[in-house]
Design a protein around this nucleic acid. Structure first.
Lengths: 208, 208
DNA sequence: GATTTTGATTGTTGTTACAATAATCAAATG
DNA sequence: CATTTGATTATTGTAACAACAATCAAAATC
């Protein structure tokens, strides 16, 4: 037996309904079309982005939870000879002695695969640190930035790589490494939106 | 008055219709939902990606005989999270060089494993080429050295890394890359024992 | 009066559907 | 033989959707 309108606990409520920003991205979304081959790349980027959003929102240690993760690197280990350039005169052969050690660039450069990403350097602001345009900077999100570290920071929406320092009044300072003086230090003021995304732990490049 | 089937130049044609891969991305696409704030970042990434696809199209066409196939030469698992640094606001220049697809540093740096070794840089003679003391230079012995290449040479029993050039009289010249003038070019004379050991194809370092 | 239940309401999200456009083919035309 | 033509199929941006999740305050219950 069904009686209509017998009970009505619900109904029209002013201001009811789900609130904006309660979704995965905590902000409005939209739909775009992408090439299939780049889907995983973009979803990786977005998972990193959402992770950051959640980090900032809750300030909890998500590493313990392990919900979010970068793809694991299926890496084929290489072991390539590293030579000491002070090889004594004579006829040294790379196949023989004088091998300082054997190393794999990926293992050498990357500590935590799931906390590491690469950024391509633009501009000459860090040239004195040996970072040229086009170089790939290895960024480790898991490391705590210390004074003197080269860091990837987002300042008012733009990414920049600078040396982290502290000004006399205690506020953070982002220093370029370019003697020319073309690039100015960024003093972090209260009103600025600055976030340290990670510490630059290494770099690599190709010449040819 | 309409007469049906008066003229029909068209009609069913086997194999007719638009071909796959004729779109902007030259590959299948799909739809994903993204946070609105990241739309420009992702569209930048995609525009740079399509630009690269088009650049490569020439090479592909040369040896592509059968259907459409991408040169899966590096089907080797290469990974690590993408990051695409945002193009500075107000700068509409295409972001080609900021595109990072998944990257394995070892794959990126080493072409022929058997012909590659590493040398640790000492001294500041190549600092303007971005080679600092302690950096690991990637040396490929299989590549032919050309004028302008950074090479590992053995001069009278000592190893040195310099830029290969040619002097006015046609003899090889090994140029340092250091504006300070502290390091002098090495003019290769007849009586000298000079051997090019390989071409420096890349480098890498750790900061922390 | 305080707490819990309830149903309408609204945002989220992954997917599908669609319409306009673009590319392609071979028969028909000239 | 070159051009026109209309059917055909892919592309692509967007709209629509369905299932779900979150929220509210009235109603029911304690």
């Amino acid at each position: 037996m069904k009686i209509e309108n017998e009970k009505k606990a619900g109904g029209l409520r002013a201001g009811s309904g789900r609130k904006v920003g309660t979704g995965k991205f905590q902000e409005p979304t939209e739909v775009i079309r992408i090439p299939t081959s780049q889907k995983s790349v973009i979803t990786d980027f977005l998972s990193a982005y959402t992770r950051k959003q959640h980090d900032n929102a809750f300030k909890v240690d998500l590493d313990a939870v392990g919900d979010f993760e970068f793809p694991t690197m299926h890496h084929v280990p290489l072991n390539i000879a590293l030579f000491n350039s002070k090889v004594p005169a004579g006829n040294p052969s790379p196949a023989d002695d004088h091998v300082e050690s054997r190393l794999d660039p990926s293992e050498f450069l990357v500590d935590k695969v799931d906390a590491t990403f690469f950024v391509t350097i633009q501009g000459y602001s860090m040239i004195d640190a040996g970072l040229l345009p086009g170089d790939k900077a290895v960024v480790d999100r898991s490391k705590l930035a210390a004074i003197g570290d080269i860091v990837l920071a987002m300042v008012d929406g733009d990414y920049t790589i600078k040396t982290l320092a502290r000004s006399k009044d205690g506020l953070p300072l982002l220093l370029p490494a370019n003697k020319s003086g073309e690039y100015k230090p960024i003093e972090v003021k209260k009103h600025m939106q600055v976030e340290i995304w990670g510490v630059v732990t290494g770099s690599f490049r190709r010449y040819k």
